[in-house]
Amino acid sequence: MEAWLIWLIFAVVLGIAEIFTLTAALGLLGGAALITAGSAAIGLPLPAQLVVFTVAATAGVLLVRPIATRHMFRPQLQRFGVDALIGKSAYVVQEVTGREGRVRVDGEEWTARAYDDAVVIPRGAIVDVMQISGSTAIVYPRE
C-alpha cells in the first residue's frame, strides 16, 4: 500500500474520532495527516513525511487549537426562546392572580400567574416577566 493512502486513511480515522470526542485536537491531527498525505503523494521520503506531520501537528495544536477552544467555550451572548422573555414588560389582558390570568408579551398571549400569590393585577396593567414556568409567565406589577 502506498504511503499517501496510509496517511489519508489515518486522516479519515482521526477525523471520525474527532466527531465523537469534540476535543479539537484529533481533527487538527487529522488535518496534519492530510497535509502529510499530500507530501507523500508528491514523492517525499518517509523521514521528510514524518517531519511534515510533526510540524503540521505542532502548528495546529499550538496555534489553532487555543483559538478553537476559546470559540467553543465562549459564553452565550444572547438569550433565545422563552429565556429571552424574562425581564420584558407585558400587558395584562385578563386579571392576573396567584392562580390564573393572561398577559401579552411581544404580541403573543401567555397564561400568567402573579409572582406574589397575594397580589391581584388588574386588566390593563403593565407587568414585568420574572420567569417562565412551562407555558406560564410569572409576572410582577410595575410600581
Rank of each mutant, 00 (worst) to 15 (best):
V103L: 06
E95I: 06
S135E: 09
G30W: 02
A48N: 01
A114S: 15
L34P: 04
W7L: 01
V127F: 13
L50I: 15
A41S: 13
L62S: 14
V119F: 06
A90Q: 04
L63K: 06
I67G: 09
A37R: 01
L77C: 05
S133R: 13
Q131A: 15
Y140A: 14
F53R: 02
S39Y: 05
A40C: 01
Q49H: 00
W110V: 11
A125I: 09
L22S: 12
L14D: 09
P45H: 03
G38P: 08
Q94H: 13
I67N: 12
I138P: 09
R104I: 12
D117N: 10
L44S: 01
Q94W: 08
L28V: 15
L44Y: 03
G134R: 05
A37V: 01
M72P: 07
V119P: 06
G60M: 07
T136W: 10
Q131S: 14
S133W: 07
A137H: 06
G101P: 10
A25M: 14
R74E: 14
W110Q: 10
R142C: 12
G27T: 00
A17L: 15
T111P: 06
P75V: 12
V93A: 13
T36D: 02
E95F: 06
D83N: 11
Q49D: 00
I16P: 04
T111G: 10
S135W: 06
A11P: 08
S89A: 12
K88H: 09
D117S: 11
L14I: 08
L5I: 10
D117Y: 11
S89C: 08
V139F: 11
A24K: 07
A17K: 10
A48R: 00
V12L: 15
V139I: 14
A41P: 06
V12K: 05
A11M: 05
T21W: 05
R113F: 11
A59Y: 08
L22N: 08
R79S: 13
V13Y: 06
G30D: 03
Y91W: 13
I121W: 07
A114P: 01
L85Y: 01
D116E: 14
D83T: 05
M1G: 04
V129H: 02
L85R: 01
G107S: 11
E108Y: 10
I19C: 01
L77Q: 14
A37W: 01
A137F: 05
F10A: 15
A112F: 12
G87T: 03
H71D: 08
T58W: 10
L85A: 00
V105Q: 03
E2V: 02
I126P: 07
W4H: 11
V139A: 10
A137I: 06
V51M: 04
R123Q: 13
D128E: 15
R65K: 15
I86G: 01
E143T: 14
V129C: 02
V51K: 00
A56M: 04
I126M: 12
A84T: 05
A118P: 01
I132S: 04
V119T: 14
A11T: 04
T97C: 08
G87V: 04
R102V: 14
F53T: 03
R65C: 10
G30Y: 02
E95Y: 07
I138T: 10
P141F: 11
R74M: 13
R79I: 09
G81H: 00
A40T: 00
D83V: 03
A118F: 08
Q78A: 10
